[in-house]
Amino acid sequence: MFNDRTAKFLLLAALVICVGGAFAPNWIVNQFMFGFSRALAILGLMVLWRTGLVSFGHAFYFGLGAYAVAILDSKLGVSDVFLRLLAGAVVAGVAGFLIGFIMRNYRDIFFAMLNTAISMVLFGIVVKTESLGSTDGFAISASTIFGLAPETKYPLFVIITLVGLTAALAVNFYLKTTFGKLTTAIRDNEIRVEYLGFSVAHAIHLKYTISTILAGGAGALMAMSLGQVDPESMINWTVSGELVFVTILSGPGNVIAPFIGSLVFEVLRTYAFELAPQAWQLIMGATFLTIIFFLPGGIWSLIEKLGGKKNEK
């Protein structure tokens, strides 16, 4: 069925990308690393979005993940790629779980904005604290893999692709479970879900925590791929906006969508910046508005249409 096809496609695509990456020039490898790192956060936001929740503040978790890597690096000298990833995901996940107790009571725009507010608190703290790098942030040393320091970025690229694959498969599986299937049900009618004997608060809390773990992991991977973190690019509200932008761009239709959407975003931004250094924001904003108006299902809906809209749905 539909889901099996998704899993199969993911596995094959990951294989093709990993092999292709070995022959691709560095800048393309970079675009894929940035894109797939971000895609992890988008995956989490997608889970929330299918429940009707949009967070305008997930840069909080993205930034926590990135800064976890930075602090581990600068204060403790930890360079192992898996330790770093784990730290980012765990720190963000724990924070997300705790904050989730508040968040799960909020919906709609209040949910969106409470998240922004919390992310701005972190932003304010980091910007003003010299030991946290203030506005400058930190440079991040190259990651090692089980003590080995790779010559090129390729191993990190493969790891990011595989992490992305694992996350996509896991989310795909989760969405098939009963709890996962509650997503759309909650969006449509919360009270009915309660009458069915499920706790909406618990379901949302779980989804929220999942999304924060993914966002933390995304931040950690992004920090490693870029080799730099700073509050403006990792925590500020504009970053949350970007994350949501990519989520909308991708569309909620399938766990593959975030990966395609993130790649499109990276390429779009690279070229917008290259072609119109003074108007790249305009290009991004206009694209965003166009998607909201004319392609509410995101790029994924376009792919479905082109693919002849199979039996799924």
């Binding site: 709609d108 108007a279 305009l282 904003g285 206009a286 508005l289 108006f293």
Partner: peptide, 30 residues
């Protein structure tokens, strides 16, 4: 823009205004 969105999700409208924000910032520059 907004008039055509009132039937849509509130949060989507926030996002539209974010897109507008980006556009308006650069139009100022121009």
């Amino acid at each position: 823009i907004l008039k055509h969105m009132y039937e849509r999700d509130e949060v989507l409208i926030v996002l539209a205004t974010f897109g507008l924000f980006l556009v308006l910032e650069d139009i100022i520059l121009i």
